[in-house]
Amino acid sequence: MAPADVERTPILLAIGGHDPSGGAGIQADTEAAAAAGVHCCTAITCITVQNTCGLCQLVPQRPAQVRAQCQVIMDDSRIGAIKVGLIGSSRLIQVLGELIDACPGVPVVLDPVLAAGSGQVTADAALINQLRLHLLPRCELVTPNVPEALLMSTVTQFERAAERLLAFGCKAVLLTGTHDHTSELVINRLYRPNEAVVAWEWPRLAASFHGSGCTLASAIAARLASGQSLVDAIEAAQIYVAAALNTARQTGRCQMTPRRVG
């Protein structure tokens, strides 16, 4: 990168897991950011053993090692937004909170990866409790699907779940409808305190996609890093993800993998 480009290149710091299949996690974050014209710096929270069929093993990285990865980037680059994905261990939450506090005014997007797309749980009760107490209050936006929202909020209705997550302190909740099979459409709803709910409707595709949640959250975060408003960033990111899903390719035996658009 030329020195003249340093000041004008938006930078996203993506903190999450490594997916060997290339469909989710840090690789999805990097591709979504690049498609938005944003440079993506990364920190690995977990090494995973997985493919498009499912998750076999999580190997969380030591909190001190994750802190070091993030700190050298923060010391060197002007971060425009932070995206947090798979965390893997409750011991990491405090470190993430401290790192976020060291970047005042930088928007944080949390994709609470509490289970793999194939159903394997990736978060225990301690992690979820720490997430509620110490990470949600630091987030500009949280992007759970319906099962994740219900799990984090301990309620049984998604509307109440979104309200409960806002009560924990996050500024906005984008509740995604990919797992709500009661509707023929995928309906994504944005909840904010004292604001009307904003909803977007998308055709429900027949295939199962690996990494679409990671891609959506990082596409939003990348646009926030570029200075877009929250609603504009969410809308543009959904358009990007819809195009990616419609041109996805199957790289393994099981799930489709979204491909980069643009």
Rank of each mutant, 00 (worst) to 15 (best):
G22H: 04
G22D: 06
G22F: 02
G23W: 01
G23H: 01
G23R: 04
G23S: 08
A24N: 03
G25S: 04
I26G: 10
I26R: 12
Q27P: 10
Q27T: 15
Q27C: 08
Q27K: 15
D29Q: 03
D29I: 01
D29N: 06
D29H: 06
D29G: 05
D29F: 01
D29Y: 03
D29S: 03
T30A: 12
E31Q: 14
E31I: 09
E31D: 13
A32K: 15
A32Q: 13
A32W: 11
A33F: 02
A33W: 05
A33T: 05
A33D: 07
A33I: 02
A33P: 13
A34K: 11
A34F: 14
A34S: 14
A35W: 11
A35Q: 12
A36D: 10
A36G: 08
G37S: 09
G37Q: 11
V38P: 12
H39G: 02
C40D: 08
C40S: 09
C40P: 06
C40Q: 10
C40N: 05
C41P: 08
C41T: 11
T42I: 11
A43V: 02
A43C: 00
A43M: 03
A43T: 01
A43D: 06
I44K: 07
I44E: 11
I44L: 14
I44M: 15
T45S: 14
T45C: 12
C46G: 02
C46F: 00
C46W: 01
I47P: 04
I47G: 04
I47Q: 06
I47D: 09
T48D: 05
T48P: 13
T48H: 05
T48I: 07
V49N: 03
V49S: 13
V49I: 08
Q50A: 08
Q50G: 11
N51T: 11
N51V: 13
N51G: 07
T52H: 03
C53V: 07
C53F: 02
G54N: 00
G54D: 06
L55S: 02
L55W: 01
L55F: 00
C56Q: 13
C56D: 11
C56F: 07
Q57Y: 00
Q57V: 00
Q57H: 08
Q57F: 05
Q57P: 00
Q57R: 12
L58Q: 15
V59T: 12
V59M: 14
V59C: 13
V59R: 14
P60L: 05
P60S: 04
P60G: 10
P60R: 03
P60H: 03
P60V: 03
P60C: 01
Q61R: 15
Q61H: 10
R62I: 09
P63Y: 00
A64C: 02
A64F: 00
A64P: 01
A64W: 00
Q65E: 12
Q65N: 07
Q65Y: 00
V66D: 14
V66R: 07
R67S: 08
R67E: 12
R67K: 06
R67L: 05
A68R: 04
A68H: 05
A68V: 01
A68L: 08
A68N: 06
Q69G: 09
C70S: 02
C70Y: 03
C70H: 00
Q71E: 15
V72T: 15
V72P: 13
V72Q: 12
V72W: 11
V72F: 07
V72H: 06
